Computed example of a mutant assay.
Amino acid sequence: MKIGILSDSHLKSDYTKEVIDFFKNENCEYLIHAGDLCIEKNLELLENSGLKYIAVFGNNDRNLFSLASKYNIKSEPYYFKIKDIKFKLMHLPYHLTPDCDVVIFGHTHIFESDYKNKTLFINPGEVCAREKPLIECVQLGINENEYIITRCFKKINEKNFKKEEIIYEK
C-alpha cells in the first residue's frame, strides 16, 4: 500500500497540485493532508484527485470550517483506519502519543520520521516552501513487515522530485 502525505500547503495551490500529481504518478492509493490548507482551492485539488483522501484542519484553517461537510476534512486529532493500520492525524504536534500504528502531524514545516514503541511518527515537511526553498512531501509504503518512508523534495524551480528512503522493520 502506498500513501501520499502532505502538509502546510498554505496559499500555494500550484505547489499542492504538483505534489498531488507526483503522488498519482507514483501510484499512491491514498492522500493524507496534515492541515494548513488555508484556501478552498487546496481542498478542491484533493477532492478532484480521484484518490481517497483525508485532511485535518490546521491552525490557519478557521475560514474552512464551514466546508467540513463538503470535503473530507476533520478536526484534530482524527483517528481512522486504512485496511488494518490505525492512524492518528493532526496538524499541531500536541497528541504525539503511541496510541495507534501511525501518527501523522504537520505545523513545524520540518520533515520528521521516527519509529518507537511500535508507532511510526511522520511529519512530511512543508508544501508551501515558506521556511526553505523546498516543496516537500512523504510517500509511505506499508508492507507486512516494514514501513518505507520516502521523503520527496524539490527546489521550487526544479522539475523533478528527489527521494530519500528510510525503512523501519515492524
Rank of each mutant, 00 (worst) to 15 (best):
K159V: 15
I82N: 06
H33S: 13
L11W: 01
I167M: 00
F65A: 08
F22Q: 05
E112N: 06
I149G: 03
I82P: 07
I167A: 01
N117D: 14
C137M: 03
P124I: 03
T150N: 11
A68C: 10
F65N: 12
K17Q: 15
L31F: 01
A129M: 05
L92A: 14
E126L: 04
I85P: 04
F153R: 05
H91G: 01
L67T: 00
G125N: 08
Y79M: 15
A129F: 01
D61A: 03
V102M: 11
C128W: 08
L43R: 02
R62P: 01
L140C: 10
K17V: 13
K70D: 03
T16P: 03
I39A: 00
N117Y: 06
G125R: 08
N117P: 00
E131Y: 15
N27M: 05
Y147Q: 08
F22N: 09
L45F: 00
H10P: 11
I156E: 02
G141W: 12
F57Y: 08
F22R: 04
A129C: 05
G4F: 10
V19W: 11
E169W: 05
S13W: 04
N48G: 07
D101R: 09
F57S: 01
I3S: 00
I5L: 14
D101M: 07
D101I: 08
K118R: 12
K162E: 14
F87G: 13
D114P: 00
N42I: 03
I82V: 10
S7N: 07
F87S: 13
I167R: 09
E136C: 09
L67C: 00
P133T: 02
H33D: 13
M90H: 02
E18Y: 02
